[in-house]
Structures are given as C-alpha cells and as structure tokens.
Nucleic acid binder design. Structure first.
Lengths: 303, 303
DNA sequence: AAGGCTAATACTCAGCCATAGCATAACCCT
DNA sequence: AGGGTTATGCTATGGCTGAGTATTAGCCTT
C-alpha cells in the first residue's frame, strides 16, 4: 500500500456566543489549532480519535463533527525539512455550545484572523484601506492576477462571495500579505495586512472551515448545533449572521425559518428588552420534508 | 506528531460519453478504484502524487481534480487484521474527457454500481421491487429505522434527494443488503440487492464521489470539464442529466444556461438529426459575475 | 417534390418566492 | 403617559421557475 507518514488530526472547534463566532486555539509560540495524533491501536475511526484527545486536552465533549480536508503538502511543518517524516493532517470541523475549557485552550473571535470577512457592519474598512491597495501592487499589470483578485475579493464590479474564504486567504498568502508567507520563506515579514496569524498552515485550515460552514448552513440545519435547545428567532438570526458575516432582513428571516418548517414555537415567552419573544425549537421532522433544509441567505436564489 | 500509518490515494475518475456517466476501474479479484501510494520523497503535494501514478498506470492526464474525503476506519483493508499497518486513504474526484486508457483499466457505467440512483427514465424499478421490501424487513418495527429509511430513500411521502448517495449506500450496508457487508463479516452474502460491488470500501468512496459531484454541478461550472470545448446545448443538458440522474425540461434548461451567462454561442452550427444546433462554449467571465454559477436542477429553489 | 420526422429555438403564462418596506403589538423605562 | 425597543404581521413588487405551445430548419421516406 502507501508509504509510512505521520498522520495527525486537527480540529476547528466553533462556538457562537454574544453574536461572536469563536474558535478554540491553544497558545504555544503561536496560536495553534488543537492538534492530536491518530492512535492506530486505540482509535477505531478518525473522528473517534479526534473526540478522544479533544476531550483529554480540553475537557470538551464534541457533538457535531465533520471532516473538512486533508492537508499533506510537503513543507507544512518545518520539522519535515529537518529530516522528520512527512506530516499529513486530517482537519475536522466541530460545532459546540460554548463552554469553559481547561488547559491552555482559549476562545478567539475568528474575525480576528480574517478581518475582511465580517460584513455585518457594512463593507469592512480594511478592504479598501489595506487589502485593495496591497493587491493592486501585487497585480502589477498582469490581467490574470487582476481577474483573480477581482473574483475572490469582489473588486472591480464583481460580487462578494462569502464562501470564498480560503481562496481569499490563499491569494493573500501568495501575494506575501500575511506573515505566514514570509515565515515559511524564512524571511522577515513586510507590508502585511492586519489579522492575527497562526502556526504552521493553521490559518489555512481555519479558512477552509469558515468557508465550508458558511456554505453548509445554507442547506443543512447545522446552526442548531450552536444554539441551546430553545431560542428566540433573533438569537437564531444573530448566530446565522455571525457565521455568514452579513446582516439579514429580520422579517424575511423569520418568515423563512417558520414558513420553511425549520422551527416550531414552544408557546413560552422570554424577556428580551422589548416585547417578549417566543421561544422556538428545532423541528427535526424537517429533515423528512425538505431535501435541503437550511436557513437561507440573501442573494441565494442560485442564479 | 501523529503515528506512523500507511497512506494511499484513491481516484474516482469520471467521464461522460453517450449520455452514460462512467468511472475508471481496475479489474483485480474485484472491481477496484485506481489506487496508488503517496511517495513522500517524490510528491510535493497529495494531488501531484495522484496525477503522477494515474498517468503512470493508465496513461490518463488528469485535468480537474478535487479532494473528496479521507477514509481511515480500522478494518477498511483486511490486510490490517493480519497485522498490517493502519491503512488511511485520501480519495479524489477527477473529471476528464473520456479517452482510451492503457493497462487493466476500463470504464464502467456508474449506475451499474448504484441502479437506484438513475431516475432518468422515471422512478427506477429496483426501488419498489427490491429496495423497499428489503428495507421493510430491516425496519422491522423500529420507528427510528423507518424514519431514516424514509428520509434517505424518499419513501413514505419524503422526497428523493439526489445528493444523498452515500447515505443510501451506508444504509444498505448496515442493512446487510450489499455483498460488501457480508464479505466484511466473513460470511456468505444473502438477499443482496442488484448492483455491482467493489473491493474494500471502494463502493463507499464511489458513492461519496457521486453525491459530491451532484451537489457541485449546482453551484460551480464543473460540467464543462467533461465536455469538449464546444458543444450544443442538448449535449450539455445530457451530461448534466447523466450526472444528476434526472431529466430536465429542455426549454427551461436552455433559458437558464444562456440567460445565466454560463455559455456563449460560437455562431457555428452542427448537424444533429433535426434542425442544426448552434455550438456553444463556456463563458469564463461568469466566474466574475455570479457568486455561484451552476447549471441548476429542478426543485432547487432551496426552500 | 411532398409529407413526416427530429431537434432547435422562440414565446407565453401562471405560481411562487425573495426583497423590502409599512404597520401594529407588547413590554421596558423614565 | 410617552418614547424606546423588540417581536410579529402584512403587502406590493419583481424575478425566477415550471410547464406548455408554436415555429423553424434540416433530414428521410415515399
């Protein structure tokens, strides 16, 4: 069969509290995603291995878990260059209701890592102030570079696609606009954009996770994994907005999820600061009724 | 870092000719997906490794390649049980324009492996004749089994979701309705459904690929990877239908792809058996204009 | 050469849904 | 009592979908 390599598991663990999407990181020399080995003797499946060491390291029991992508480029880990084995790692996305964690783990707003991804208060300043000019000089005069930049960053009349998180990060990496790009070349960083960097290729993994999650909420009811069993419609909306990075029209959102049969009222009310809101819960039956139940975002009519 | 395991690469190589979607298999004791090792010394990235040995083994140069999933359950390969190392394999989906292949490789209609997935001539016979009764006896009286069967096979009023190919195969595996399930338990198969089986977990990988591809054509213009540079609209429609496994309304399909800016006419005509058809080509600019250009399938309005 | 066959292309119409804005209800506070 | 805040209800509009009808342009058969 194949050749012997080192295989590891990475987890992007996401929670949303107070309208802030957060991810769990471990603080080493740099911010690091939780990482653990696959123990072939111990773990019958990859995701069981993941759950095992996440629980051991952070005390967090994972609920929803989904495989993201397998990263195996040479040079992911500088230890390889020094003669270590090839490091392949399988990255997972996990959704949890935020809880306290033990050890060196801590939660971080994931828009700290991707400031240009949060459009909830309108077009992020950093785009026109930093990203666009920096890209302009990367483009030089090359039309294929311009086209690519326009498409992934929605410049020059192209529209912004919230799911292209990874493409954006990879473009910035190629354009030497993130510290990781310089670090991987063994040089001092210059002209980097704002945004927290991470160890190894972990910010790339994080970008993969964000993009995937943004896509997924549209057609699978995964948001509910991040919410308590009962919630108000505004709470639900805020979580969706936090993930999608855009604001939604309240009345339409409400109609969409109710009319779509995604939730059902419990009859109970709760204080909110204004008129009391009804508490809702997820309707599992929707999985039977609709082929692709999701929350729906604007501009999603597909064409 | 992680522990030493064997890592391999699997390829689901898809082409569509004559309205038949085909995949490339290698004939060993059983039908097998093309498989090769990752050579850590040789291959800088996983997909380069894939391209290298696919070209070596079959003479086929791959164009579009996409990572599918990483399979790492214990017991995937019986060799493990005999003390071999844990076998993890990264599966890829590749789209090609069909060409002749060398070696022991050959093309097979992928609906031979999943007869219940082809709805182009209406609801497949095998569903009501074989699948439904067999599932009925698996269900026994368990309501959670009934719900799951209803959802994934669109029974009992639930609607059929073309993308749930993997869920369907996994259900059949659990219900001991495919030969692989018996083989993996070391027993003689009984009461299995029609449909060609494959070595190891390769039919599971194939199901993953089909489901993923069916999803992808809806929002990314990947179909064009399977078509010659110029094509008629009916050719395009036939390829989409072959993948999606359903028939589409011709006029609406035409309106969708033209009006959506996905293709542009070349001005040239070609003989077709009826009125000559115009040749079209893919419009790359659409990537700039629309966030999620895909061909669109019926019942896709999302809600 | 006429008529039939096939496939391509054009046009229409009803229904549904997404977007967006307006209006009202229920609770808090001062 | 009145203003602020949030929840919830309703409606107009435009666009797209799904389905059907009509017309055109070649080929083939008789």
């Amino acid at each position: 069969m194949g050749s012997r390599v080192d295989i590891g598991l990475n987890a992007v663990i996401v929670a949303v509290t107070e309208e802030v999407p957060r991810i769990l990181t471990v603080r080493r020399a740099e911010d690091t995603l939780p990482f653990g080995p696959l123990e072939p003797e111990l773990d019958r499946t990859l995701d069981r291995g993941l759950r095992r060491w996440v629980a051991e390291q952070t005390g967090l029991p994972l609920g929803y878990v989904e495989q993201l992508y397998t990263f195996g480029d040479r040079g992911r880990d500088p230890a390889e260059e020094r003669g270590g084995p090839r490091a392949v790692s399988v990255a997972y996305l996990a959704l949890v209701r935020e809880a306290s964690v033990k050890g060196e783990a801590s939660w971080h707003d994931w828009y700290e890592f991707f400031p240009w991804e949060d459009w909830r208060d309108g077009r992020p300043r950093v785009l026109d102030r930093d990203v666009a000019p920096a890209l302009e000089s990367w483009i030089g005069g090359a039309p294929e570079r311009r086209e690519r930049a326009d498409i992934v960053f929605g410049l020059g009349g192209a529209s912004w696609d919230g799911e292209r998180v990874l493409e954006r990060y990879e473009l910035l990496y190629e354009a030497l606009l993130v510290p990781e790009a310089w670090r991987d070349r063994g040089e001092q960083g210059e002209h980097c954009l704002p945004g927290r960097s991470m160890a190894l290729d972990h910010r790339r993994i994080l970008a993969t996770a964000l993009g995937r999650l943004r896509g997924k909420i549209k057609y699978r009811p995964v948001v509910f994994e991040l919410l308590p069993p009962t919630f108000t419609l505004l709470q639900l909306q805020r979580v969706v907005e936090a993930l999608a990075g855009v604001r939604l029209h309240k009345q339409n959102f409400r109609r969409l999820v109710e009319h779509g049969g995604l939730v059902e009222g419990t009859g109970q009310d709760v204080q909110t600061g204004g008129r009391p809101a009804e508490l809702f819960m997820f309707r599992r039956e929707v999985l039977r009724e609709r082929p692709a139940p999701g929350v729906g975002l604007p501009g999603m009519k597909r064409t």
